[in-house]
C-alpha cells in the first residue's frame, strides 16, 4: 500500500496483510467507541496506530486480540477469519498483545511470568504431570533456557526472582513485552509500549521492536509520540472517532493537508520538533 487512502472508506484487504479488520463497530451503552474502523497491517511491517485520546485505539486492539467482542465487523489473520475465536485461541495462532496499563502477573516472579507464556507446555495437563513427568521436565528445561535468554536480552535477568508486583513502572513495561515475546508471536499488538517510560528506555524498547521485525514478527503498535512513530514505524494508520481516517507512510500523511488539519496538525505542533 503506497498511496494514502483517505476518507475512511473500506479498503480492499491487501493479499500480504498479516492482520486486517473490516468495518468494526463497538459501542459501550450509548457511546460509540469504534465506528467502522477498516485497515490492514502489512506482513513484516512495524505499523503505528495513532489517533487522539479516546479515538478508540485501545478498543480496536482489544477487538483484534479478542479481549473484547465487536458489535459487528470482521477480523482476519492472513486469510483466516478469526472474528469468532476467543482471545486464547487467537494467541495460539501467534497473535499476542500487550496492554496499555502493564498487566504483570503480580503474584508470580518475573521468571514465572515468562514461563507461563511458553507456548508448548505439556505440564499444563495434569495427566502428563503424573504419568509423563519426563516429558514435562524436558519441556520445562527448554522453556527455562528460552526464558533466561529473553530475560537477559531485556535486562531483567537480575530481577528474575523478584515478585512481578515489586517492579518499577519501566521494568513492568519491559516484562510485559518480554513475556509477549516468550509466547512466540508472529504478530504483536503493542498498546502504547512507551507510555510513561524515560527516554533511554524508549530507545531501548524501539531497538527491541526492530529486533522483532528482523526476526520476522509483524508489529502493530499504538503510539502517541509521533517522533517515535517516524523513527521506527514504516506504516501508519490514523484513527479518529472510531473511524480509519487515513493509512499510509508517515511522510505521505504529513503532506496531506486534510489529515494534518483534521488531526495531525495539533499533535505535530505540540509534540514533534521540526
Amino acid at each position: 500500500m503506497t498511496a494514502p487512502d483517505l476518507g475512511g472508506a473500506p479498503t480492499a484487504i491487501s493479499v500480504d496483510s498479516a492482520l486486517s479488520c473490516v468495518d468494526i463497530h463497538k459501542s459501550f451503552g450509548g457511546a460509540k467507541a469504534v465506528n467502522g474502523a477498516t485497515f490492514s497491517v502489512p506482513k513484516g511491517s512495524i505499523t503505528a496506530l495513532i489517533g487522539p485520546n479516546g479515538a478508540g485505539k485501545t478498543t480496536v486492539v482489544n477487538i483484534l486480540s479478542g479481549s473484547l467482542s465487536s458489535d459487528s465487523g470482521r477480523v482476519m489473520m492472513g486469510d483466516t477469519d478469526i472474528t469468532a475465536l476467543p482471545s486464547y485461541q487467537r494467541a495460539r495462532l501467534g497473535l499476542i498483545r500487550t496492554f496499555q496499563l502493564s498487566r504483570e502477573l503480580g503474584g508470580l516472579t518475573v521468571f514465572e511470568n515468562l514461563m507461563v507464556a511458553a507456548k508448548v507446555q505439556p505440564g499444563e495437563s495434569l495427566m502428563n504431570v503424573y504419568l509423563r513427568p519426563g516429558l514435562v521436565r524436558q519441556a520445562e528445561k527448554e522453556s527455562r533456557e528460552r526464558a533466561a535468554s529473553i530475560l537477559e536480552q531485556y535486562g531483567l535477568y537480575d530481577l528474575r526472582d523478584n515478585w512481578a508486583r515489586e517492579l518499577s513502572g519501566g521494568q513492568k513495561r519491559l516484562l510485559e513485552i518480554s513475556r509477549a515475546v516468550m509466547a512466540e508471536p508472529s504478530l504483536l499488538l503493542l498498546d502504547e509500549p512507551m507510555a510513561g517510560v524515560n527516554p533511554a528506555l524508549i530507545d531501548r524498547i524501539g531497538g527491541h521492536i526492530h529486533e522483532l521485525k528482523a526476526a520476522g514478527v509483524t508489529v502493530l503498535m499504538v503510539e502517541h509520540n509521533l517522533g517515535v512513530v517516524e523513527k521506527i514505524c514504516d506504516h501508519v494508520i490514523v484513527l479518529a472517532e472510531g473511524r480509519t481516517l487515513a493509512t499510509g507512510l508517515m511522510s505521505e500523511l504529513r503532506e496531506n493537508t486534510d489529515v494534518v488539519r483534521a488531526y495531525l496538525g495539533g499533535v505535530l505542533d505540540g509534540r514533534v520538533d521540526r
Partner: peptide
C-alpha cells in the same frame, strides 16, 4: 504435584489477571 506443576503456575497466573493470561493463549 499439582501446585508445583506448570498447571499450577498457569492457574495462579489466571488468578492474578485472567484477561492477560487468556491473551497468552491459555484457556
Amino acid at each position: 504435584r499439582i501446585t508445583n506443576s506448570p498447571f499450577g503456575r498457569t492457574l495462579r497466573a489466571s488468578r492474578d489477571d485472567d484477561e492477560a493470561t487468556a491473551a497468552l493463549g491459555k484457556n
